[in-house]
């Protein structure tokens, strides 16, 4: 009995440093920020309580955050929706395509290293790389140079300087970065599929695409869903690449939630307003949090 109590104490001692860190720098601040989102929060301090006013203003009174008066809508929320949809779809499908194709050649490792490389690089550096590709000067920017090469009449475009192209330009740069992540995870899962299954279906006369569609994809479904979830979480919080490439501009055309939180809080000094945006981000990841916990529980917390 005393030994068991001793063991419980030892266990608590081992996790104590982590508990302190997590409580002071994550859990307590999270509660603080939730409260602050119902406050005016000027000067980054609690000042006047405003109830749901920050949230109401965000959704009804702030075209930079959400503007439903045009079609298609504009604003940070809508931009973030674009990010989630296009970044996720392209990263997963390109990652899967590259994993499957590279699996068939001898230089697989080289292809995978090249595609994966941007994952190791800072988003700041990726942003510079792509600002360079998008430069409106066709003697500097590769994209305008290529288009001008094929079409002499083409008027070079400032891809990151126009409201109608800026989001696509940023999302493409980010797809270039995170496809490597999807590829690596899916490729590892692909190696886990027993080759006999694939061989057998080939012997049965299945076409390559049928094998891919009816065997590879279903057997990768767990890995695909894990990749999708991770990509969604990351893209909800996307910040660095936008901060460097456009500062949310031109105007506010490329703002997203994380950028809005930063700009309102630290440039506008409206900590309550910015906190409301952070809480919205938190609410968006809660389903994913619940999913992770449930998945982990069902696989057994114990070994």
């Amino acid at each position: 009995m005393s030994m068991r109590r001793g063991q419980a104490l030892t266990g608590l001692l081992f996790i104590l440093p982590a508990i302190i860190f997590l409580s002071v720098f994550l859990i307590y601040p999270t509660i603080w920020t939730i409260l602050l989102s119902f406050n005016d929060g000027r000067g980054l301090k609690f000042s006047e309580w405003v109830g749901f006013e920050n949230y109401i203003n965000l959704f009804t009174n702030d075209p930079k955050f959400l503007d439903l008066s045009n079609f298609p809508p504009t604003g940070a929320v809508f931009n973030n929706v674009l990010w989630v949809i296009f970044n996720t779809i392209f990263c997963v499908s390109l990652g899967l395509l590259i994993a499957v194709l590279a699996d068939r050649v001898k230089y697989e490792r080289i292809v995978k290293a090249i595609v994966f490389l941007p994952m190791a690089i800072a988003a700041t550096a990726v942003a510079i790389i792509w600002l360079f590709v998008y430069s409106p000067n066709p003697d500097i920017g590769l994209l305008n140079a290529i288009i001008t090469f094929f079409n002499k009449d083409f008027e070079p475009i400032a891809w990151t300087g126009r409201a109608d192209t800026v989001n696509a330009a940023l999302i493409v740069a980010n797809i270039w970065t995170s496809t490597g992540f999807a590829m690596v995870v899916l490729s590892a899962a692909l190696k886990g599929i027993p080759t006999e299954i694939i061989e057998a279906s080939r012997v049965d006369g299945a076409k390559e695409f049928q094998v891919f569609r009816h065997i590879t994809v279903p057997m990768l479904s767990l890995a695909i869903s894990v990749v999708t979830i991770t990509l969604i979480i990351n893209v909800l919080k996307v910040f660095d690449i936008i901060y460097i490439m456009t500062l949310g501009g031109p105007g506010s055309a490329s703002r997203v939630l994380a950028y809005t939180m930063y700009a309102e809080t630290f440039q506008g000094g409206k900590a309550g307003y910015g906190s409301a945006v952070a809480v919205i981000l938190l609410i968006l990841v809660i389903p994913i949090m619940a999913l992770n916990i449930r998945r982990f529980r069902s696989e057994g917390v114990a070994r």
């Binding site: 002071v24 720098f25 603080w32 980054l44 906190s275 992770n292 982990f296 917390v301």
Partner: peptide, 23 residues
């Protein structure tokens, strides 16, 4: 407690900026 840690993995760091600065 471990499940709480798993949950904390996805909390956006934006939730902590103002309070941590104050601390």
């Amino acid at each position: 407690m471990f499940l709480i840690v798993v949950g904390l993995m996805v909390v956006p760091i934006q939730m902590t900026f103002v309070p941590v600065l104050s601390i």
